[in-house]
Amino acid sequence: MLDATKRYASLPSFYRLCGRLFAWLLPATVALFAAGLVWGLYLAPADYKQGEAYRIMFIHVPSAWMSLLVYMVMAAAGAVALVWRVKLAELIHIECAPVGASFTALTLATGMLWGKPMWGAFWVWDARLTSELILLFLYLGVIALYAAIPDRRKAARATAVLAIVGVVNIPVIHYSVIWWNTLHQGPTVTRLDAPAAHISILAPLLFMAVVFKLYFITVLLARLRGSIAEQCRAQQWFRDEAAGRA
């Protein structure tokens, strides 16, 4: 077990592993995503209260779940990078940040598009959307700090500290926003909620959530392969690899 861990923690072998897994995962992700789209957009019945508008949920809710999960993965990889100084963990940690930020931005965009027909306005300072906005700031902070430190390894460990502080803070921030929201309830009370938890709607939602997780792994592998190539571009093993491909 330890041997296998050591083997794949070395960058050249992990690079090759990324390539092999990516070649398998990419078609699987695309096919399952297409199936999820058909299920969510066509097969699932319209909601009796929100009509067809609720279909935005199939992209909004998995994306929102991912925005939090990716932050957790980022902080966990950051903790490993800080304690054991594993270079691979540093790469996983920092490659998570742009993906998580894009999930967060997607959640905000689809939430606003869902809010317009449900609330009558694109933005009403709903508790969950506001938390999501602050989460976006947290991601941007990690990305900006990483960009500001010239030494890549030091930068990754600095953002790891920030991400761990963020993980401790996220529940407090989320709770405080809910507290604020219940005290200053706006004029509209309709919430962006999974409508009735009916199985014909819940099933495609959970399916989409699984597809999003698979998608995240696929993207992370692609990003890791790219960043290992970037860091090792002057090394002989990578040049051999590149010459072998050409």
Binding site: L138, L140, G141, A144, A148, I173, S176
Partner: peptide, 23 residues
């Protein structure tokens, strides 16, 4: 030029203080 960056890093963490303190 770390001042602006520090504001970006720190201000989101201040949200709970603002909410509970003002409340």
């Amino acid at each position: 030029g770390g001042e602006m960056l520090m504001a970006l890093l720190v201000l989101p963490f201040y949200v709970p203080l603002l909410v509970f303190g003002a409340n």
